[in-house]
Amino acid sequence: MGAEFVALSLPPLLIGILAAVTCALPGNFLLLRRQALIGDAISHVVLPGIVVAFLLTGTIATLPMLLGAAGAALLAVILIEGVRRTARIEAGAAMGVVFTSLFAAGVLLLEQSDTSAVHLDVEHALYGNLESLIWLDATGWASLVDPVALSGLPPELPRMALALLIVVLALRLMWRPLAMATFDEGFAATLGLPVRAIGLGLVMLAALAAVAAFDAVGSIIVIAMFICPPASARMMTDRLGAQVGWSVVFAILSAVLGYVAAGYGPLWLGYDNSVSAAGMIATVSGLILGITMLIGPRRHPAGLARQG
C-alpha cells in the first residue's frame, strides 16, 4: 500500500492540491472585484498560446509552453480591455467574446498542425493528465528523503509549488492595496495607490496560476478553483482574511475528495474503471459551494441582506 500510494497517488494528489490552492488564492480577489470570469478567460486562452508556442518551437518543452501561455493571457487581457472600451460593452461580454474566440482559434490551430507526435490535444487541455503524473522512482515513504528518487519526481510538482510560492508572496505584499482598491478604488487612488497596476498585477497573478496549473491539471480545474472555493468561503465569513483562509481549506478539500472519489468512487459503486480526477475535483468544488450556500453562516446573496 505504502509504496504504491507514494508512487502512484501522492504526486498527483499533491499537484492537485497545489494547483487548487494556487488558483483559489487570486480567485478570492477576482470574485470580490466581480472579475471571476477573468480566470475563465485566461484558462481558455492558454490553449492557443501553447499551440502557437509549439508551432514556433516544435517542442512541448516547459519554457516555451509557459511563455506562450503567458503571452496569450496577456494578449487576452489587452483584447478584453480593448473590446470593452471601443465597443463600449460590459466587461463580462467582452471577456466572453475574447476568450471563446481565442479558444476556438486554438482548437483550429491544433487541428491543422501535426501534433500527433506529442502529447498535445484538446482533451489534454481540458482535463489535464493528473493521473499520469506518477513517480516511478518511488519505492515507498523512504523515497521522500532519497535525493536520487526525488530527482525523478514529476516536474509539475516543483513547478506548481514554485507558482504557489510566488502567488502567496505576491498576495502578501499586495494585500492591503489590493483590498483597498477592490473595496473603494476611488479612495485608494487618492492615496496615490496605482490602482490600475494593482488590478493588472492581480490578473497577471491569476494568469501565472492558470498557466502553471493548466499544464498539470487542465483548464477544468483551473476554472473551477478560481471561483468555487472563494465563493464557498464567502458564505462562511464576513472577513477578508478568513475568507481567503476558508478558500484554501475548500480548495484542498476539493482536491483530496475529488481525487479519491475519481480513483475509488466507481470501484465502490461496482464499476471497474476510474473517472477523470480533474472532472471529479471540479465537481466536488461545485458540491461544496452548493452545501455552503445552503448552510453557510453568511449565506445571503450579495445585496439581499441590506437594510435601508
Binding site: 470580490l32 492591503r176 492595496p177 477592490t182 473595496f183 485608494a188 464576513d238
Partner: peptide, 26 residues
Amino acid sequence: ASVDWDFPARVIDVVLMGLHRELGLL
C-alpha cells in the same frame, strides 16, 4: 453608493484604510 458594501470587512477595517500612509504594505 460608489462602493460595494457587501465587501468582507468590518467597520474598523475600513477606518484603518485611512492610515495606509503609516501602515504601508506590511
